[in-house]
Amino acid sequence: MANDALHNSALQEFLIDAQVLLTKAEECLLHLQLIDNDPDACHCLNDTLATLVERAQTLGLVEVAAYSQQLQALLEPAQAQPALQGEALQALESCLTLLAWQLELIDPHTGRLSLDTEEQVQLLDTLATALSPQTALACTSCIETQHLCEHSEPSMTAPATAHACALSSPTRVN
């Protein structure tokens, strides 16, 4: 029982810290909306997401950790190229909004997040397309069925690591 209290306390602390990290990520986004591809804002956003991933993984919050890690994996290469502007920033804003909803919907007792991943996959694909149109993560039918896209068309798939990561999901609710 003491272990449950410790976990609940750690979970509550995480949820507070995650809100602070999310606010920081949103501030980075606002900065990027003012100054496209600002290296400091890009670096801050990457570090903030990495911290969120690490803390979520430590508590075993698989869904939040996986989504945050997928988001970070898409954004990390964008720091080196002028990709964080226009549509990419709009897609990033949508991704951060979904992350905020995920944090709100975490069960405060179990730490579980019982949501399907369809919206998550679509938002990550939209961001990937905006960052680099030739490396969209999946075709529409694969997004809808939440399957790995194995089509031979180069414009329909991304490199294997980003592709598999973006469409993998720890939980699916039917």
Rank of each mutant, 00 (worst) to 15 (best):
D36I: 04
N37Q: 05
P39D: 08
P39N: 09
P39F: 06
P39E: 07
D40W: 13
D40G: 14
A41P: 05
A41C: 08
A41T: 05
A41L: 02
C42P: 04
H43M: 12
H43Q: 11
H43R: 14
H43Y: 12
L45R: 00
L45E: 00
L45H: 00
L45K: 00
N46Q: 15
D47F: 15
D47H: 14
T48P: 09
T48M: 09
T48R: 09
T48L: 09
L49Y: 03
T51R: 10
T51E: 11
T51Q: 13
L52E: 02
L52Q: 04
L52A: 03
L52G: 03
V53P: 02
E54V: 15
E54A: 14
A56F: 02
A56H: 01
A56M: 05
Q57A: 13
Q57V: 08
Q57E: 15
T58F: 15
T58H: 14
T58P: 09
T58K: 14
T58V: 15
L59A: 03
G60I: 07
L61K: 01
L61V: 06
L61W: 04
L61P: 04
E63N: 11
V64S: 06
A65F: 00
A65K: 04
A66K: 10
Y67F: 10
Y67A: 05
S68W: 01
Q70T: 10
Q70C: 12
L71H: 03
L71S: 00
L71V: 02
L71M: 08
Q72F: 11
A73Y: 10
L74E: 06
L75R: 05
P77G: 04
P77L: 02
P77Q: 06
A78W: 02
A78G: 07
A78T: 08
A78V: 05
Q79K: 13
Q79E: 13
Q79N: 10
A80R: 15
A80F: 12
Q81S: 14
A83Y: 09
A83F: 07
A83R: 14
L84S: 07
Q85D: 12
Q85F: 09
G86Y: 01
G86Q: 06
E87M: 08
A88F: 00
L89Q: 00
L89E: 01
Q90S: 11
Q90I: 05
Q90E: 12
Q90A: 11
Q90D: 13
A91C: 08
L92P: 00
L92M: 06
L92G: 02
E93K: 12
E93I: 02
E93C: 10
L96M: 03
L96T: 04
T97K: 11
T97L: 11
T97G: 09
T97F: 06
A100M: 01
A100Q: 07
Q102D: 09
Q102S: 05
Q102C: 06
L103V: 05
E104A: 13
E104H: 10
E104K: 13
E104G: 08
E104M: 09
D107W: 04
D107N: 13
P108T: 02
R112E: 15
R112H: 14
R112Y: 13
R112I: 13
R112K: 14
L113H: 11
L113Y: 11
L113R: 05
S114G: 09
S114E: 15
S114T: 12
L115A: 10
L115Y: 09
T117K: 10
Q120W: 06
Q120I: 08
Q120P: 08
Q120Y: 07
